[in-house]
Structures are given as C-alpha cells and as structure tokens.
Design a protein around this nucleic acid. Structure first.
Lengths: 193, 193
DNA sequence: CCTACCGATCGGTAGG
DNA sequence: CCTACCGATCGGTAGG
C-alpha cells in the first residue's frame, strides 16, 4: 500500500499540528520534514487550511467508521457499550495525532468546515444517547438517568484518553475499554447504599 | 476590588487564547482589545510567554485551591468525591478561558514552566488516587478497582466539562457534580449482574 | 502609553 | 519540485 505524496503530507501535518499546534506549524516546517522546499508543497495541496480540514476530517471519518457497525448490532446495550468504548478508544489510541488535532484545533476551521464537523460530532453523541435510551427502555439501565449527562460521562472517558494514553503503557485500548465499562456499569461502590 | 492593568491584560489574554489559540493571538490583537498600541503592552509585561505562564498558572492555582481544603477533610470518601467533583467542575465552569488554555496550550510552555506545571497537575491526580485508595481500604469502594484508571475516569468527567459546559445551560456545576457522582458511585445498571 | 521602527518569518505565487 | 520573490504580519525595542 504505497502512500501517495498527498497522504504523506497529511500525515506529517498531523504530527506537527499535534506537537506544535496548527498556527505554530509553518509550511516550511512541514516541507523540511518531507525533504522539500516550502513552495513545493503547493504542487500537491491548495493551502494550509486544506491540511487542517484533512487531518481533522480523517479523525472524524475514523470515529464514524468505528461506531457505524455497532449502530444496529443485535446485542445487549451493555455489550454494545463495551464494544463502542473499545472501538472509540482504539481510534484515539491509534490516531493520537489526528485525534488531538481534532480536539484542539477544530475551532480554527472555516465556518463551513466547522459546521460540517459539528454534525459528525453530534452523530457520535447521538450514538451513545440512543444506546442509553434503549437500555433504559428495556430496564437494563437505571430509569432515572439523565441521558445527556450519561452520554457526556461516557464521551469524557473515551475522548480524554487522548491526554494520557501511551502506546508503550501497560494497558491497550481493549483493556482500558473493559475496565471503563465495568466501572461505568457497576459503579465504584462495593455495596449499593 | 480594582483590577490592575496587569490583571486586565492577563484576563483579556485568557479570552483571546481560548478563542483563537496562543500562537494565533497577536500582541496587537491583545493591545487593541485593551484600547492601546501593541508596543505599549511591554510597559506592563515582559513578553508573550509571560502571558501564557500567567493564564495557565492561574488555572492551576484555582484547581489547587479548590481541592486543598478537601485533602484532610473528615468525611466519607463518597462525600469527599462529591465535594471534589463539585469544586473541580466549579473551577472549570467559572474559568472556561484559563481552563481551556490550560488543557490546550500547556505544551507551548517553556521546558521549565512545563515541568513545574506537570508537578501541580500530578498533585490533582494524586488527590483522586488517594481518595480512591482510602475508600478501597475502608471497604467503601470495590477492592478490585484499578486506581489509576478509576482516577482517570473521574478526571475525564471533571475536565471534559470544559468542552460542553455552558453557563446558560440548564445545569450548574453543582448539579453536574451531583449527577456525575451518582453515576460514578452506583453505575448505570439498574440491577447488579 | 505612543510613534516609529527593527529583523525575522509568515502563507503563498510566478516561472521554470 | 526548485529558486526567487511578494506583501503582510509577527514579537519586540528605542526614545520620548
């Protein structure tokens, strides 16, 4: 699977945007990492904004693709939550660059790109809300849950891994998802009050 | 409580750094918001880096100050968790600017400032780990918890509020903390499996 | 706090 | 993909 020059540029852009931030990365920084001159980049891309759109869009694609197969999976809500967290954290863990850029730099997108990204982010939120609603309706989850907040809690756990996850750490994405799911479902308390 | 010019500058810097990011904010942007010329800023501050250090340091001060009184409070771990989450989320909610800059821009600090900040961030992490360890030792929390991961779960919930919290939303920091605490302690499941 | 300015660097382009 | 260059803007300073 040979990588096109364009894809190489996007990938290195993701690395630099994560390390230094979008605005602090110059086109000359990027070019020198690729062993070419600054101006030569424009033979492949239209401008700096395209790089941000592509890096963040790539991340959004991955989140979408990770959750899509689970949307209509026939399995108990608890199991689907576990699978969703595993898939979600897996995307973060294996794409720390683009995920970090997604979370930190999406405010720097043009209004148009910004709007389209918000829709895709909402789709992820909706996934967890629908899952919670279904589990509440079938009596698996507590009937008094605040769905919005419960979804935020799950999203917090999954997304925040971008801050602390290290690929050389003791736990892989699967392990993290298993433990998070257990804590989220059963709680921290030993005995119900 | 008259605000010194220096404090005004730090505050506006916090606003702009949140909105546009540190590197995308120019000293002239900042000056014009204050109604002065770019060069005039240097009568009050040493340089742009000082602004970042101050804004992020302010945020770190607030987190420290919020948790400090709870470190040796005599109360059950469950209650201390609730109080900690309330205080933690309160800081985020009332200081969205500096908190956002804290989370997004700390990588742009000088190595020296970066190191000192990491220590203070570790103190916050330790607070939650100690709380969890104590609760496990006294049989309140499950004995099989992964303390590190449990602390990350709590921190995720509290910190990620910077992404979605709105002061004009239906829930205040206290409400959010109460609901998060309930979910974290008792879990999402209606019946223990 | 202002005016006027410094060297450096920015994103991007023309022409090859 | 390179050389050479553009106007614009950057953080910061001197002198008042």
């Amino acid at each position: 699977m040979a990588k096109t020059r364009k894809e190489q540029i996007y990938q290195v852009a993701g690395e630099l945007f994560k390390q230094k931030g979008y605005h602090a990365t110059s086109m000359r920084d990027l070019a020198s990492q690729l062993g070419i001159q600054g101006g030569s980049l424009y033979a492949h891309i239209s401008g700096k904004e395209e790089l941000l759109v592509e890096v963040i869009g790539h991340s959004a694609d991955l989140f979408d693709a990770a959750l899509e197969p689970l949307r209509h999976l026939e399995a108990p809500p608890t199991e689907r939550l576990r699978l969703a967290l595993a898939a979600h954290i897996d995307v973060v863990a294996h794409n720390l660059n683009s995920a970090t850029v997604f979370f930190h730099e999406w405010q720097h997108l043009s209004p148009e790109s910004h709007r389209r990204l918000a829709e895709r982010r909402d789709r992820v939120e909706s996934f967890y809300r629908d899952l919670l609603a279904e589990g509440m309706a079938t009596g698996v989850f507590r009937p008094d849950l605040d769905i919005k907040l419960a979804a935020f809690l799950i999203l917090s756990a999954a997304n925040w891994t971008y801050v602390w996850y290290r690929s050389d750490g003791p736990l892989g994405p699967q392990d993290i998802a298993d433990r998070y799911t257990a804590m989220l479902l059963r709680g921290l308390l030993l005995k119900a009050p």
